[in-house]
Amino acid sequence: MRSRTPLALAVPAVLGLAFLVLPLAGLLIRTPWSTLPQRLTEPGMLAALRLSLLTATLATLVCLALGVPLAWLLARSGLPGRRLFRALVTVPLVLPPVVGGVALLLVFGRRGLVGEWLDATFGVSLPFSTAGVVVAEAFVAMPFLVIAVEGALRGADARYEEAAATLGAGRWTVFRRVTLPLIGPGVAAGAVLCWARALGEFGATITFAGNFPGRTQTMPLAVYLALEQDLDAAIVLSMVLLVVSVAILAVLRDRWLGAG
């Protein structure tokens, strides 16, 4: 027998649901469906979409390459001060992205701590470039991946790693052939979260990489810009972002995240 839901819970719950769903419904209702095909194929639109997908994917790859080993360090090694490092890793999660962008400028800017050296040694300048977009997105999105992978590592049975060691596997082999396959779903989930966060990144990107069409103007930046000139264009851009996000989430949810 199902118990009756108390009114004190039901009312706010329904309000909460409406609060989350209504804006999306509003977006669907206001979408200019008749001119949609034409607007979707505008060159500026396609350029922004392509740039967004490219930078979000590259940022996710950067996060995977650096974040999975970092998560392993936090979860498995006897590193002293692990709690402090874990706290530091989560700072970008709560930091306003604009502040992140300013901080990135101070370090990777042309006169920044690392930026000056990069410029002098390799002639590389990150700010206001596509690479800068990737850096900004990776900075903001990496904590999502690290936290997800660290959680997966903590949940994984470390005794499988011991079994592998008794069979002659060194630590790297254990990680590659046992740990990584065991935490595969967790890594995938983290990567999806990370990618979605990178795709929506706005504050750090516009601060660190600017807003140059074709080079650093990603979809969220294009939406913001369009909002001031052409509301319908902003709605169409938002629709595309919404569809892409939901589609990726739906596909990966079935394939990687399992049921429930």
Binding site: A163, A165, T166, G168
Partner: peptide, 11 residues
């Protein structure tokens, strides 16, 4: 270390 002991274990 365990990986160099050549000791087989059935857990």
């Amino acid at each position: 270390p365990p990986e160099h002991r050549r000791i087989g274990v059935v857990f």
